[in-house]
Design a protein around this nucleic acid. Structure first.
Lengths: 340, 340
DNA sequence: CTGAAAGCGCTTACAG
DNA sequence: CTGAAAGCGCTTACAG
């Protein structure tokens, strides 16, 4: 049993009011004598106030939740770190929720989090996120999105980082001379997927190429398995010379398929990913990818959330406005003689 | 403002005692009429009790913390999932803490978690863990270790999964004909590292080979960077034909170094990892590794913790007693003519 | 300069 | 069958 404020008061020979004041730095009208005596006792008893009891009064739990589909997607690891580091900086702890993209699970989480008096929720890649954005669902807790928050929306023409990212990726391949480029991303229900597709199409159009609808594909997931299984048949007979992937895991799957099909990367086929997860550089060949600065994504979303929770402006955003192309070894110059 | 028990009581025309009883299923002595009336109001108002207030009474927050060095180490992702899934199954939420292996951070976390009335802590790969095991530190909260808990200790002769794992890995290389085998793991302060080294040495001894102290190495971290930077000079001039790595990331670094040194894997040199992280199969060549069932590790540790918290036996452990060798493409038969 | 008292949303032992 | 009251550990407006 940890010490309580009552015990400290008794040991110090003062009232709990006095102890509380000292604890909260509202001791301007107390005598130095009292203050130092009480502080000594607090020290001695290794006392720390119960956040729980404080929260009962203040209705502030100093708890933020982070809800994502699955930690096992490496995209999220840095987001989580950014989120946790930021939360801690401002005195919040992080509750962690994996929803597996199951709407029911997501809704249950929200309810359970509310009953915990959570102060706010950072959401990423969820069904619920889509519902909220489409006004089909209202959360009565402060919340914020990792992608698609105010920092991520670049301007009126660029919808989001995903949009910008796949534009940049496609443009890079176009500059290498590729013309027939595939695009594969996750399920179409996600804004990420839609924005990515738009970015890809815009890049083509800006080069005067009409996007071939058959070249773009929504996979069943943002996973390497989906990339491998669903892209294998496509890659087997494709006339294209390159592929833009909605995330790196999909690219991993594509690379595996290409290897098995004996299509040499980057000599015969170019691959570009998105997210720039940590293992990319250890692949052989190293995966060229678009880096959205995942850590900053998590940090900025959390700052935005805390601004909402505390209803004040915190100027502690990262400088994270743009997506960065990280060139490794999976993209090569288009060689006309290689095809057809 | 969510509804409170008081509001429900008023709307139902009963006392809050009655509502509380219904909420907690202690309604055996209440009239059906009252019960259904109150339940209807609860439904109608979308009321859920405040866990906070409940906890003030019960001293049970239904909150578990998971503290690890860094989510960005892919080893932990599945551990986290196992931990969260298990926690949720038993009604707990998961608070997430990254300590970066900084003892001060770890100690601060523990303090902050205690002031949150956390019910227990799952610890993994921490400085604090070592201190606790060496009786240099006492936690006055229930806790449990991911590695080194009762399920992980295989028997008196096998210290832990790490020990077992590197034994198995080394044995596999020996069976392929390798004799001069390197071992590289993380910092020596970790039990993981020490146990791994012992397993490696035991395997050699069991084959009648005296371990060469120069062949084993503690790196500065369990990271690919450490693996690459610190193993590069060693691999450049080594007479060995294989390496056992303390985890997969170290192996990733070693593979990168070998590639740059133009040493062909597995033809000229064999590499084996540990943890079997998800991306192993997408490497080229695919990394052979030892799979400790990370999800089960997280799950079992959490079960053990909940048993401590609730002071009862929960027979819900996974069947996870042994480490599994996952053979891919980085280990080959020792070719005598290649070396000498 | 200091403290008594009310209240945050619950639960539970007890009385009727 | 139902409810008044005490108490969990705090904070704060107010009185002295």
């Amino acid at each position: 049993m940890p010490a309580t404020i009552k015990k400290i008061a008794q040991l110090s020979g003062v009232s709990i009011t006095t102890v509380s004041k000292i604890l909260n730095g509202k001791d301007h009208d107390l005598s130095q004598n009292t203050i130092s005596r009480v502080k000594a006792i607090i020290e001695q008893e290794n006392y720390y106030p119960s956040i729980l009891a404080q929260s009962m009064r203040n209705a502030q739990m100093k708890l933020i939740a982070l809800m994502i589909p699955d930690v096992r997607n490496p995209f999220f690891t840095d987001v989580i770190r950014g989120c946790e580091d930021c939360a801690n900086k401002y005195g919040y702890s992080l509750v962690f929720c994996n929803s597996d993209n199951i709407l029911e699970k997501e809704v249950n989480y929200v309810r359970s989090l509310q009953s915990r008096h959570i102060d706010g929720i950072v959401l990423s890649g969820l069904q619920i996120e889509r519902k909220i954005k489409n006004n089909q669902l209202k959360l009565n807790v402060p919340y914020c999105f990792v992608t698609g928050n105010k920092k991520n929306y670049i301007n009126e023409t660029k919808l989001s980082l995903n949009n910008e990212g796949s534009y940049v990726a496609t443009q890079y391949l176009l500059d290498l001379g590729h013309k027939d480029i595939l695009f594969a991303t996750g399920p179409s229900v996600y804004n990420h997927s839609q924005h990515g597709l738009l970015g890809y199409q815009e890049a083509l159009k800006d080069k005067g190429i009409h996007p071939n609808p058959k070249n773009s594909l929504f996979l069943t997931g943002f996973t390497a398995e989906a990339g491998y299984n669903e892209l294998f048949p496509l890659l087997k007979n494709t006339k294209a010379s390159a592929i833009v992937c909605g995330n790196d895991l999909i690219a991993y799957g594509a690379l595996k398929a290409l290897r098995e099909l004996n299509i040499s990367v980057p000599h015969d086929f170019s691959v570009i990913g998105y997210d720039d997860i940590d293992t990319n550089q250890y692949l052989n060949p190293g995966l060229t990818s678009v880096n959205p600065n995942r850590y900053a994504l998590g940090w900025d979303a959390t700052i935005e959330l805390i601004e909402k929770i505390e209803n004040r402006s915190i100027d502690d955003y990262t400088e994270n406005s743009f997506v960065k192309l990280v060139i490794r070894e999976t993209c090569g110059v288009f060689k006309h003689e290689d095809k057809n």
